[in-house]
Design a protein around this nucleic acid. Structure first.
Length: 271
DNA sequence: TCCCAGGCGATCT
DNA sequence: AGATCGCATGGG
């Protein structure tokens, strides 16, 4: 079976999935505005607060705290059983074990489609810190202020604002064009939810500045298409280093396996 | 300073 | 259909 790698990795990981790890999610590269709020010296970081922003909601939460708000339960994908009991032989793989241990607690978020689309258009050929800087700039430029934070702009906000000095580079026109498509109703990101993954990918890649990789990110991180596995420079490196150049990230949970490997890779840059 | 970053579109073979 | 190239900017 082609997707045996992904199934095996989830099989390993199910042992660990009794707790979400907010810190890892903040640093996982799937969202760009979540923060770890610094909170004085504590060597165990036991009092760290994590701040998530989605649509017009802000959540401050500490590790171990319960979430009851249905909005955030949905955001953190509580309904998805990451401990799926896959069948098939278990091929012991040292790399899979390392990744599962290292990345345990990350979940695939259900983010706002417009924010995800714009953010990942901006993401191309940028480092994660640089993406965060750009996204924060456009929020501050034209997003609504709330509790000292700035919400991600609506399509209309983005169309009407001058964001030419937000450091977007050649992606500026891509962002403006995508915002116009949504603001003018030429595409309906909510209606995309009921498309097949194949049709969703077709619609997303028809937007200028959206290729296979960015479309996969939007499909996975906004529309929960777990079979979509974005392959960027880090994932290419992983494939070449650990899988002999053959992409193992295929199958119905490929995107989840991909995200765990991605998190491992960006935190092991010396390899 | 130099290299590279969650790539894409245009333009070739 | 595959391979190559230019692209704007910021972080390490």
């Amino acid at each position: 079976m082609q997707h045996i790698f992904c199934d095996n990795m989830l099989n390993i990981m199910k042992r660990y999935f009794n707790e979400i790890n907010f810190k890892k999610i903040v640093d996982s590269g799937q969202c760009f505005r979540a923060q770890t709020l610094s909170c004085g010296a504590n060597r165990d970081n036991i009092n760290e607060t994590f701040r998530f922003i989605s649509q017009d909601k802000i959540l401050d939460i500490k590790q171990g705290e319960e979430i009851s708000d249905p909005f955030w339960c949905n955001y953190f994908d509580f309904d998805k059983d990451y401990g799926i009991d896959f069948q098939g032989d278990f091929a012991k793989n040292d790399f899979i074990n390392q990744v599962a241990e290292y990345s345990k607690g990350i979940r695939i978020l259900k983010q706002d489609p417009f924010e995800t689309l714009i953010s990942f258009i901006i993401s191309q050929r940028r480092s994660i810190p640089a993406i965060k800087t750009c996204v924060e700039r456009i929020c501050k430029r034209c997003g609504v202020e709330k509790q000292g934070m700035y919400l991600f702009p609506t399509p209309e906000d983005l169309v009407n604002a001058d964001i030419s000095d937000c450091g977007l580079g050649y992606r500026h026109d891509y962002v403006k064009n995508a915002a116009k498509l949504v603001a003018y109703g030429d595409i309906n990101l909510e209606a995309f939810r009921k498309l097949s993954t194949q049709d969703l990918m077709y619609e997303l890649t028809s937007i200028r500045g959206v290729g296979e990789k960015v479309a996969n990110c939007v499909a996975l991180f906004a529309y929960s298409r777990y079979e979509c596995a974005p392959i960027d420079t880090w994932m290419k490196r992983a494939i070449n280093t650990y899988f002999g150049g053959k992409n193992p990230f295929v199958g119905e949970n490929a995107g989840i396996a991909q995200q765990y490997v991605f998190y491992y890779m960006i935190n092991h840059k010396n390899i």
